[in-house]
Simulated scan of single mutants.
Amino acid sequence: MLTVENLHAWYDHSHIIQGISLTVNTGEIVSVIGRNGAGKTTTLRTVMGLVAKRKGRVGFDDQGDILMESTHARYHHGLGYVPEDRRIVPALTVRENLRLGLVASALKGQEEAVIDRIAETFPRLKERLNQVAETMSGGEQQMLAIARATASEPKMIMLDEPSEGIMPVLVDEMFDLFIRLKDQGTTILLVEQNVERALGISDRAYIMDQGVIVHEAPAADLLENKEIQDRYCSV
């Protein structure tokens, strides 16, 4: 599904990503974990085409190398992305935010059917379709951001720190949701500071440190390896 090869990325003169390679197979949940500042968010932004200075190769689905394609083109290939800051429109209702996820989608003419589908997958949002987004809790707003990204039925979705600042009861609900999305056929690349929860739902995981991949393993193996977690993933 996704193949990243020798990827480099810069912000101005700062060389943030230094030749990383990773893969995400169709139907997997793959986590990228590591300390703050390791380069995890920059990795997702570069794969999505949001970092201007980059080199390497990003292969997605059957599209070949998409590294130099626009973010818009990547969206149309079926790549979704939920950034750390959510970027919902706070003054709009839940329903209106979900419609925004379909503006450039081939499903635009099927808005009500899509919203009905999302409401079944996200039961907490089903109760709040007419509620203004800014009146919801942070966790509910995060669910809305994820729901909006799934509206166009992407083949793969990248999630950046979805549990950050969320109350524990909603974190449990959110991780259950990721498993449900996987069961529905959505491939997931997850960046997450909650290492134990991320590894608990992932098939495989990569550990990043200072812009490079330092370890790759089945998530179950890393979940049991506290030495590696302490070395590379403590904040």
Rank of each mutant, 00 (worst) to 15 (best):
G27V: 05
G109M: 12
P162C: 07
V214N: 03
G19E: 02
Y206G: 02
D85R: 12
L67Y: 05
I66N: 01
A198Y: 02
Q210E: 13
L129S: 10
V191A: 10
D172Y: 02
T26Y: 08
I207E: 03
L223C: 07
K40W: 03
S31K: 02
G211K: 00
G80Y: 02
M136E: 05
E173T: 15
L44F: 06
T26L: 08
V169R: 13
N225S: 08
A113T: 13
E84L: 08
K226P: 10
S234A: 14
A9Y: 00
F122V: 05
T93Y: 03
G139L: 04
Q184D: 12
T43C: 10
R128T: 06
G56C: 04
R197C: 05
D172F: 02
G211F: 00
S105A: 13
L181E: 00
G34M: 07
M158N: 11
G59M: 09
P123R: 06
A219L: 07
S163H: 02
P123W: 07
T135E: 11
A145M: 03
V114S: 10
E84Q: 15
G34Q: 09
R124M: 12
D62H: 14
M156L: 15
L159N: 10
H76T: 05
I146H: 04
L177D: 00
I207D: 01
V191S: 10
I20L: 13
C233I: 04
V195R: 00
L223M: 13
A198D: 06
P154Q: 00
R54I: 03
L170Y: 01
T23V: 12
A151M: 09
G34F: 04
M208I: 01
L100H: 05
T41V: 11
K126Q: 14
G19D: 03
A147T: 11
I20M: 10
S202T: 08
E5R: 14
A147D: 10
Q63W: 06
A106P: 15
